[in-house]
Design a binder for these strands. Structure first.
Length: 446
RNA sequence: CGGGCUAUAGCGCAGCUUGGUAGCGCGUUCGUCUGGGGGACGAAAGGUCGUAGGUUCAAAUCCUGCUAGCCCGACCA
């Protein structure tokens, strides 16, 4: 993309309403624009980041065995009357009427809808397990939306639902999603810690929230530093191996990690040596829980069991706040100059900065680098605006492009361009070809 | 939903107390000089002062209603 032809309304000053850093930076970088309280338009740069995150979520869901579907945003009230939640849900649910005066709603979640689909479509226990998921806009009429897209009323969520014949199967499905979430967040360059969540009326210990540690997080978290050091790395996962998955889950849940909701100071102090006690802030980006037959019983969603008689599904649901992740990643990755995108989710991976637009040699070198980057499959941004160098650096750093290729007449005289890492500031002078090769190696692209 | 606050140009703000020509900075446009970390100079464009009503010769300014938005708290991907 040529910056001169992009739509990116950058602000030099911070809009007054933005309090937290991700919101400020997203507004300044022209990623979003507020439409009304808690509702945002996604401008090109923000939309690009959102789609990259969404793509990783899709990929990791499917690797873990979940199957993508797409359910509507508008749902029938009748479906929710079956589960009993139409009255229970409260004013957070946006209720609307269609022209025939039928009660409809903008879905805040999809348990009812997916249970109806599974109940109608899955006939035998031999078709199980099945995990279906979608990534769809949700609406929850929050009392007080805030922090930009971090707590909007309309938000993009990945919600998945598992269907099994018994508790053992449901546990396997739960663990699949647990490990899948670890992989998903790790791949985005995030340190997400699973924490025991409040299981509410259903009870049991099969519910976890995944939180990203960030100073600006909304929840206070308490954890054993050991758990923050865990990493899946490049380990190959055998998703069919129930015991193996259980082992991973056990490793990640053995150490103390809780939010203020479930925190018990006495247990914390007893279980965790003082040197490893970490008190921090976290942003919830995922939440998984097992809810057994809660919806399947209520909605009569059953399959033929091994004895031929109908058995209600054992289910769990698994959410990732996709749009919230955009903000969360920025919260966890920024400095005083702007955002610092992890390579895996960066809207643009490399920026070519032409220090002297209009200089024949500099222009030619930039065009060549830009073409080559595109040919090699990079998401490249070429700052070809007729601006001074300082202005270009400020813009590119604000946007948080992980790598800068700086091209100017002085360097070109020596046959070099400068490759600079946004996060570390590390800079090396290389020939254009070497710089391209270095980037290709960095991103694992041949 | 309880408490606090705001609404004036794309963004940040002043003007309101004491009613009388709507202003500043940034950004934008044009020109010139510039050009390795948000350049300088000159010129210009851009505003139903949130909205409806009231008081007044006269309302951004005073009064009333409404709407929208923000912050703190309780709740949530």
């Amino acid at each position: 993309m040529r910056l001169s032809r992009y739509f990116i309304p950058i602000l030099k000053e911070t809009p007054a309403e933005a309090q937290i850093v991700s919101h400020r930076l997203m507004l300044r970088a022209g990623m979003i624009r507020q439409a009304s309280a808690g509702i945002y338009s996604w401008l090109p740069l923000g939309y690009k980041a959102l789609r990259k995150i969404e793509a990783i979520v899709h990929d990791e869901q499917q690797k873990a065995g979940a199957i993508p579907v797409l359910m509507p945003t508008i749902q029938s009230a009748d479906l929710w009357r079956e589960s009993g939640r139409y009255d229970a849900y409260g004013p957070e649910m946006l209720r609307i009427k269609d022209r025939h005066d039928r009660d409809m709603l903008y879905g805040p979640t999809n348990e009812e809808q997916i249970t109806e689909i599974a109940g109608a479509g899955i006939r035998s226990y031999r078709d199980l397990p099945t995990i279906l998921y979608h990534i769809q806009w949700k609406f929850r009429d929050e009392v007080r939306p805030r922090f930009g897209i971090m707590r909007g009323r309309e938000f993009l969520m990945k919600d998945g639902y598992s269907f099994d014949i018994d508790k053992a199967g449901a546990t396997h499905s739960y663990n699949r999603m647990f490990v899948s979430y670890l992989r998903t967040f790790e791949r985005m360059g995030l340190k997400a810690v699973p924490m025991r969540a409040d299981s509410g009326p259903i009870g049991g210990d099969m519910t976890h929230e995944f939180l990203i540690l960030a100073d600006t997080g909304e929840s206070a978290v308490f954890l054993d530093s050991d758990i923050a050091d865990l990493s899946l790395g490049a380990d190959k996962i055998d998703w069919e191996d129930a015991e193996g998955l259980q082992g991973i889950v056990d490793r990640w849940t053995s150490a103390y990690a809780r939010t203020d909701e479930t925190h018990e100071e006495a247990v914390f102090n007893a279980e965790v040596p003082e040197a490893r006690r970490v008190t921090a802030r976290g942003i919830e980006v995922g939440h998984i829980f097992y809810f057994g037959t809660k919806y399947s019983e209520a909605m009569n969603a059953k399959v033929a069991g091994p004895e031929g008689s109908p058995v209600a599904f054992e289910s769990g649901s698994y959410g990732i706040g996709v749009s919230r992740l955009v903000g969360a990643i920025i919260e966890a990755n920024h400095d005083d100059k702007g955002m610092i995108w992890p390579e895996a989710v960066a809207p643009f991976e490399v920026a070519v900065i032409n220090l002297k637009q209009g200089d024949a040699e500099a222009d030619a070198a930039c065009e060549s680098l830009y073409d080559n980057l595109n040919a090699r499959g990079f998401d490249a941004l070429y700052d070809d605006r007729n601006e001074r160098a300082g202005s270009k650096f400020a813009t590119i750093d604000l946007i948080g492009v992980p790598w800068k290729l700086i091209v100017g007449p002085r360097g070109l005289k020596e046959g070099v361009v400068e490759l600079v890492n946004r996060r570390t500031g590390e800079a090396v002078n290389l020939s254009p070809d070497e710089a391209l090769n270095r980037l290709s190696a960095q991103f694992g692209r041949a």
